[in-house]
């Protein structure tokens, strides 16, 4: 690996200043589980690595049943699934957090890092989109908010401007009768890159028989994670039944623009999006009804 200097600012202001002074010479590190592998392979090396894990806001996990969840960008995955309140409130998020890498990776990797890494296969991104996550971004010009679905712009590229970094992700408070689920398809049972992944969240009416709203997002079927807006919107106001779910899964399939590569073919991936959309919707419905 090429040499670099290691900087660990302890406040947002300090981080902003550090990044401003280093310009494109700096690379931001959270858990490092993707970044160190990339740098070791000679990709994305930089003279300065800025570790943001010492900044309190980046480690924040604050949940309020009325305000929702603020999840610091450097919070490692295990803190999500080991927190019962959180995993009860956002089971879909727990699904994703508990299948990124193995337990060792989950001890370091963060949802924020997963989003910024902007891999098409990023396992947490579809569910964060489905849950309506908003990125809180800090930079020299202050802070700004951006919906998660707008964060990934190309494989490995995110919407952060030079000098900006992701502070946290805000999730709206879970609505009554809502549920969510993330599933990915991999040939093994762990330690794999999604061939296809789907995150779905639904809100049902009080009877549990009709959709109020739904959001569906997809992984590994386009250069970036895909927000399949039409697929989710198609369910709003519709009864919960096989036909409406099938229709939504077909819309999700048409939102997918996969390629054939060593992990899967276009046909396989499109097919899997259909299967996974159905399965995640059914799981989300079950959770909504049980909630």
């Amino acid at each position: 690996m090429e040499p670099f200097d290691f900087l660990s600012p302890s406040s947002i202001d300090e981080a902003v200043q550090t990044l401003a002074s280093k310009g494109n010479q700096a690379r931001i590190m959270a858990g490092g589980t993707d970044m160190l592998v990339q740098m070791r392979a000679g990709r994305g090396t930089a003279p300065f690595v800025v570790d943001i894990k010492d900044i309190p806001e980046l480690n924040e996990v604050s949940y309020d049943a009325s305000k929702g969840l603020t999840l610091g960008a450097a919070v490692p995955c295990y803190r999500i699934y080991e927190d019962k309140t959180l995993s009860d409130a956002y089971p879909g998020l727990m699904d994703a957090a508990s299948l990124i890498g193995g337990i060792q990776i989950q001890g370091r990797a963060s949802i924020g890092g997963n989003i910024c890494n902007a891999a098409p296969s990023g396992d947490s991104i579809p569910i964060v989109i489905a849950l309506g996550g908003i990125c809180n971004i800090a930079g020299a010009n202050g802070t700004r908010q951006l919906p998660v679905e707008e964060m990934c712009t190309a494989p490995g590229r995110n919407a952060l401007e030079e000098g900006e970094f992701l502070v946290s992700i805000h999730f709206p408070a879970p609505q009554a009768n809502s549920g969510a689920n993330y599933l990915r398809f991999i040939p093994r049972n762990e330690m794999d890159i999604a061939v296809a992944g789907v995150g779905s969240s639904v809100q049902l009416d009080a009877s549990g028989q009709n959709f109020v709203s739904a959001r569906i997002a997809l992984a590994s079927v386009a250069p970036t994670p895909v927000f399949a807006k039409e697929a989710g919107d198609s369910l709003a106001g519709k009864p919960v039944n096989e036909d409406t779910i099938q229709a939504a899964s077909e819309l999700a399939q048409s939102a997918a623009k996969p390629i054939s590569d060593m992990r899967g073919t276009v046909r396989q991936r499109t097919h899997l999006i259909g299967v996974l959309t159905r399965r995640t919707l059914n799981n989300a419905i079950e959770r909504a009804r049980g909630a």
Binding site: R188, N189, E190, M191, D192, I193, M262
Partner: peptide
């Protein structure tokens, strides 16, 4: 039998030279 293989491109470049993409069984499999 199930998952292990070298993926080569048409010219013979291996595409999956890591334990992430060369899928050996884990405890969970």
């Amino acid at each position: 039998a199930l998952n292990e293989e070298y993926f080569f491109d048409d010219t013979g470049k291996m595409l999956n030279s890591s334990f992430l993409d060369y899928r050996m069984p884990t405890t969970l499999d």
